[in-house]
Protein backbone atom coordinates (compact mmCIF):
# COMPACT_ATOMS: atom_id res chain seq x y z
CA UNK A 1 0.00 0.00 0.00
CA UNK A 2 2.81 2.34 0.96
CA UNK A 3 4.78 1.65 -2.20
CA UNK A 4 1.71 1.92 -4.33
CA UNK A 5 0.81 5.40 -3.09
CA UNK A 6 4.40 6.50 -3.50
CA UNK A 7 4.58 5.25 -7.07
CA UNK A 8 1.22 6.88 -7.76
CA UNK A 9 2.52 10.19 -6.48
CA UNK A 10 5.70 9.87 -8.54
CA UNK A 11 3.63 9.06 -11.59
CA UNK A 12 1.52 12.13 -11.05
CA UNK A 13 4.57 14.39 -10.71
CA UNK A 14 6.03 12.87 -13.87
CA UNK A 15 2.78 13.61 -15.70
CA UNK A 16 2.86 17.23 -14.55
CA UNK A 17 6.50 17.67 -15.54
CA UNK A 18 5.97 16.11 -18.96
CA UNK A 19 2.94 18.25 -19.74
CA UNK A 20 4.71 21.40 -18.56
CA UNK A 21 7.74 20.66 -20.73
CA UNK A 22 5.50 20.19 -23.78
CA UNK A 23 3.66 23.46 -23.05
CA UNK A 24 6.92 25.35 -22.61
CA UNK A 25 8.30 24.01 -25.87
CA UNK A 26 5.11 25.09 -27.64
CA UNK A 27 5.39 28.55 -26.06
CA UNK A 28 8.98 28.99 -27.22
CA UNK A 29 8.08 27.84 -30.71
CA UNK A 30 5.16 30.19 -30.93
CA UNK A 31 6.69 33.38 -29.52
CA UNK A 32 10.17 32.74 -30.98
CA UNK A 33 12.07 35.23 -28.84
CA UNK A 34 14.65 34.89 -26.07
CA UNK A 35 13.56 37.90 -24.08
CA UNK A 36 13.78 36.83 -20.39
CA UNK A 37 10.42 38.38 -19.54
CA UNK A 38 8.70 36.22 -22.14
CA UNK A 39 10.56 33.12 -21.00
CA UNK A 40 9.56 33.64 -17.36
CA UNK A 41 5.92 34.25 -18.28
CA UNK A 42 5.94 31.15 -20.43
CA UNK A 43 7.43 29.02 -17.65
CA UNK A 44 4.83 30.19 -15.13
CA UNK A 45 1.95 29.57 -17.52
CA UNK A 46 3.33 26.16 -18.51
CA UNK A 47 3.66 25.03 -14.89
CA UNK A 48 0.13 26.19 -14.03
CA UNK A 49 -1.32 24.44 -17.07
CA UNK A 50 0.66 21.30 -16.28
CA UNK A 51 -0.61 21.23 -12.68
CA UNK A 52 -4.21 21.45 -13.81
CA UNK A 53 -4.25 19.19 -16.84
CA UNK A 54 -1.42 16.70 -16.29
CA UNK A 55 -3.61 14.18 -14.50
CA UNK A 56 -6.23 14.26 -17.21
CA UNK A 57 -3.99 13.99 -20.24
CA UNK A 58 -1.31 11.49 -19.30
CA UNK A 59 -2.30 8.00 -18.21
CA UNK A 60 0.71 5.94 -19.30
CA UNK A 61 4.40 6.59 -18.92
CA UNK A 62 4.84 10.35 -19.16
CA UNK A 63 8.35 10.35 -20.61
CA UNK A 64 7.60 7.88 -23.38
CA UNK A 65 8.30 10.23 -26.26
CA UNK A 66 11.37 11.73 -24.63
CA UNK A 67 13.15 8.52 -25.58
CA UNK A 68 14.80 9.31 -28.95
CA UNK A 69 14.09 5.92 -30.54
CA UNK A 70 10.35 6.21 -30.00
CA UNK A 71 10.49 9.80 -31.14
CA UNK A 72 12.26 9.04 -34.40
CA UNK A 73 9.93 6.15 -35.16
CA UNK A 74 7.04 8.56 -34.60
CA UNK A 75 8.58 11.14 -36.94
CA UNK A 76 9.23 8.49 -39.59
CA UNK A 77 5.67 7.24 -39.27
CA UNK A 78 4.21 10.71 -39.71
CA UNK A 79 6.34 11.97 -42.53
CA UNK A 80 6.76 8.84 -44.63
CA UNK A 81 4.13 6.20 -43.91
CA UNK A 82 1.11 8.36 -43.11
CA UNK A 83 1.99 10.93 -45.76
CA UNK A 84 2.23 8.38 -48.56
CA UNK A 85 -1.04 6.77 -47.50
CA UNK A 86 -2.75 10.19 -47.50
CA UNK A 87 -1.43 11.01 -50.97
CA UNK A 88 -2.60 7.69 -52.42
CA UNK A 89 -6.07 7.94 -50.88
CA UNK A 90 -6.44 11.57 -51.97
CA UNK A 91 -5.58 10.72 -55.54
CA UNK A 92 -8.14 7.93 -55.49
CA UNK A 93 -10.92 10.19 -54.18
CA UNK A 94 -10.02 12.99 -56.59
CA UNK A 95 -10.19 10.62 -59.55
CA UNK A 96 -13.58 9.43 -58.37
CA UNK A 97 -14.97 12.96 -58.01
CA UNK A 98 -14.36 13.89 -61.62
CA UNK A 99 -16.00 10.78 -63.04
CA UNK A 100 -19.53 11.01 -64.31
CA UNK A 101 -21.22 8.42 -62.11
CA UNK A 102 -18.56 8.53 -59.36
CA UNK A 103 -18.86 4.80 -58.68
CA UNK A 104 -19.51 5.10 -54.98
CA UNK A 105 -21.08 2.28 -53.02
CA UNK A 106 -20.83 3.31 -49.39
CA UNK A 107 -21.21 1.08 -46.39
CA UNK A 108 -20.40 0.72 -42.73
CA UNK A 109 -18.16 -2.23 -41.95
CA UNK A 110 -16.89 -3.69 -38.72
CA UNK A 111 -13.19 -4.37 -38.64
CA UNK A 112 -11.22 -6.26 -35.99
CA UNK A 113 -8.03 -4.81 -34.57
CA UNK A 114 -5.42 -5.92 -32.12
CA UNK A 115 -4.39 -2.68 -30.45
CA UNK A 116 -5.50 -2.57 -26.87
CA UNK A 117 -3.90 0.52 -25.34
CA UNK A 118 -5.86 3.73 -25.49
CA UNK A 119 -3.21 5.69 -27.31
CA UNK A 120 -2.64 3.05 -29.97
CA UNK A 121 -6.36 2.85 -30.66
CA UNK A 122 -6.67 6.63 -30.87
CA UNK A 123 -3.69 6.83 -33.22
CA UNK A 124 -5.15 4.15 -35.47
CA UNK A 125 -8.62 5.72 -35.56
CA UNK A 126 -7.20 9.15 -36.32
CA UNK A 127 -4.99 7.80 -39.09
CA UNK A 128 -7.95 5.98 -40.66
CA UNK A 129 -10.08 9.11 -40.54
CA UNK A 130 -7.29 11.26 -41.92
CA UNK A 131 -7.07 9.22 -45.12
CA UNK A 132 -9.98 10.28 -47.34
CA UNK A 133 -12.40 7.50 -48.18
CA UNK A 134 -12.65 6.03 -44.71
CA UNK A 135 -14.06 7.46 -41.48
CA UNK A 136 -14.02 5.71 -38.14
CA UNK A 137 -17.43 5.99 -36.53
CA UNK A 138 -17.03 4.19 -33.22
CA UNK A 139 -15.00 1.62 -31.33
CA UNK A 140 -16.37 -1.29 -29.34
CA UNK A 141 -14.94 -3.96 -27.11
CA UNK A 142 -16.32 -7.42 -26.69
CA UNK A 143 -15.27 -10.79 -25.28
CA UNK A 144 -14.35 -13.42 -27.85
CA UNK A 145 -15.08 -17.12 -27.59
CA UNK A 146 -11.81 -17.92 -25.89
CA UNK A 147 -12.25 -15.17 -23.33
CA UNK A 148 -9.70 -12.78 -24.80
CA UNK A 149 -10.73 -9.23 -25.41
CA UNK A 150 -11.53 -8.08 -28.91
CA UNK A 151 -11.63 -4.53 -30.17
CA UNK A 152 -13.74 -3.55 -33.16
CA UNK A 153 -13.68 -0.41 -35.25
CA UNK A 154 -16.80 0.66 -37.13
CA UNK A 155 -15.65 2.25 -40.36
CA UNK A 156 -17.63 4.07 -43.01
CA UNK A 157 -16.06 3.15 -46.32
CA UNK A 158 -16.66 5.09 -49.50
CA UNK A 159 -16.17 2.20 -51.90
CA UNK A 160 -16.88 -1.18 -50.34
CA UNK A 161 -14.86 -3.71 -52.33
CA UNK A 162 -15.41 -6.72 -50.10
CA UNK A 163 -17.80 -7.51 -47.30
CA UNK A 164 -15.44 -9.96 -45.62
CA UNK A 165 -14.34 -8.31 -42.40
CA UNK A 166 -10.78 -9.63 -42.15
CA UNK A 167 -9.94 -8.81 -45.77
CA UNK A 168 -11.51 -5.37 -45.46
CA UNK A 169 -9.42 -4.69 -42.35
CA UNK A 170 -6.30 -5.72 -44.23
CA UNK A 171 -7.20 -3.40 -47.12
CA UNK A 172 -8.04 -0.41 -44.94
CA UNK A 173 -5.37 -0.59 -42.28
CA UNK A 174 -2.56 -1.99 -44.40
CA UNK A 175 0.77 -0.62 -43.30
CA UNK A 176 -0.61 1.79 -40.71
CA UNK A 177 -1.31 -0.79 -38.03
CA UNK A 178 2.12 -2.38 -38.32
CA UNK A 179 3.90 0.93 -37.89
CA UNK A 180 1.70 2.07 -35.02
CA UNK A 181 2.51 -1.18 -33.28
CA UNK A 182 6.19 -0.30 -33.51
CA UNK A 183 5.92 3.10 -31.86
Amino acid sequence: MEGRTKSLKGHRIAAIVGTSAMCFAAWILFTWSTDPKELITGAVVAIVVGCFTGRMLVKDNAFYFFNPIHFFVLIYYWFVVLFSEIVKANWDVAKRVFKRDMGVNPGVIRVPTKRNTYYGLAFLANAITLTPGTITMATAESCGENGEEEVWLYIHWLDVKTTDREAAGEMIKGRLEKWIGRI
Partner: peptide, 17 residues
Protein backbone atom coordinates in the same frame (compact mmCIF):
# COMPACT_ATOMS: atom_id res chain seq x y z
CA UNK B 1 -21.78 13.51 -53.72
CA UNK B 2 -25.11 11.75 -53.23
CA UNK B 3 -25.47 11.49 -49.44
CA UNK B 4 -24.19 13.04 -46.23
CA UNK B 5 -21.56 10.47 -45.28
CA UNK B 6 -19.95 10.60 -48.72
CA UNK B 7 -19.83 14.38 -48.51
CA UNK B 8 -17.97 13.98 -45.26
CA UNK B 9 -15.36 11.85 -47.02
CA UNK B 10 -14.89 14.48 -49.72
CA UNK B 11 -14.42 17.25 -47.20
CA UNK B 12 -11.55 15.28 -45.63
CA UNK B 13 -9.83 15.72 -48.97
CA UNK B 14 -9.81 19.51 -48.50
CA UNK B 15 -8.51 19.29 -44.97
CA UNK B 16 -5.60 16.95 -45.66
CA UNK B 17 -4.03 17.45 -49.05
Amino acid sequence: MPDTYCRMQASTCIATM
